[in-house]
Write a protein that binds this DNA or RNA. Structure first.
Lengths: 147, 147
DNA sequence: TTGCTTGCAAATGATTTGCACTGCT
DNA sequence: AGCAGTGCAAATCATTTGCAAGCAA
């Protein structure tokens, strides 16, 4: 999805929830589009020092409610945000347990399909109504592993 | 792994890090063994009102450092703890996005193998050194879905 | 104007820490 | 006796919220 398409989609999502697509919100979406993985508040704030922290928090929450953004927590103390799956490709996360960095990756479709089947089965067995899954790989990123 | 085996294994892990296996720590391990999924501090505290919150936090951290316990964060504000994978079976989590409850489940071995292969491949491609993976299913648990 | 947005500063709440006390060894 | 473990209360720190001012319809 191109940058403009994402923008349009977000605009539509916001309109649907009676929210404005303000300047600050555009900046957030843009920052999230840039990164190659989910970003922390600090990382987002660093992309544009004119953004007030409280507004970043508020607007990310608002965007999350509108369905444009997803909040994820890895294991360290900061939450991270990324564009909703609907606006990106289905992907997973490489989480470096040393530096805490998180990077996206995709699984080949054969594996992904096998996984979906297995999960569907397991969910049914547990009486669980699954909406989506979340898969992370934990370990050391390239730069941390070489140290 | 039986309750006693877990206990022995934890004892060994603690000894290896020069830590005592005190009463309070035994209670924590026991509580975690009981639950059918990772537990929050609140849930653990509820199993034994004589445990001080600060000690629960401290001891869980200590057990985590010893490798006996794993801390996980799902998406709500509380962290959860479970016995380390080494002391249990490899499993995944059903996370109810309504009530926040987390329950363990296992994937059939065929799917798990396919997943391992795919992940190994993806990790190599990204120059990532993976130690393990984490897979959650998000949705509504049986009781929340029926509401 | 009218109401949503923003920025600042103060409040909240999970988690951490200091310190004095208790209990192993 | 001597040091590790505990409980309480105070301190932290990410996140949330109240409020007054700015901005768009």
């Amino acid at each position: 999805m191109s940058s403009e398409e994402v923008d349009d989609a977000v605009a539509a999502m916001l309109k649907a929830t009676d929210q404005r697509y303000t300047n600050g919100r555009r900046k957030l979406v843009s920052a999230l589009q840039q990164g190659d993985g989910p970003l922390t508040i600090t990382q987002i704030a660093a992309t544009d020092t004119t953004l007030a922290q409280s507004s970043i928090y508020r607007n990310l929450t608002l965007l999350e409610d509108a369905g444009a953004v997803t909040r994820i927590v890895t294991n360290d103390e900061f939450a991270r945000y990324e564009l909703a799956e609907e606006l990106t490709e289905h992907h997973h996360h490489l989480i470096c347990t040393k530096c805490g960095d998180v990077v996206d990756f995709e699984l080949d479709s054969r594996t992904e399909q096998a996984l979906d089947l297995g999960l569907e089965h397991a969910a049914k067995a547990a009486g669980f109504t699954a909406t989506n899954h979340r898969l992370d790989l934990l370990g050391a990123c390239a730069s941390c592993a070489s140290e």
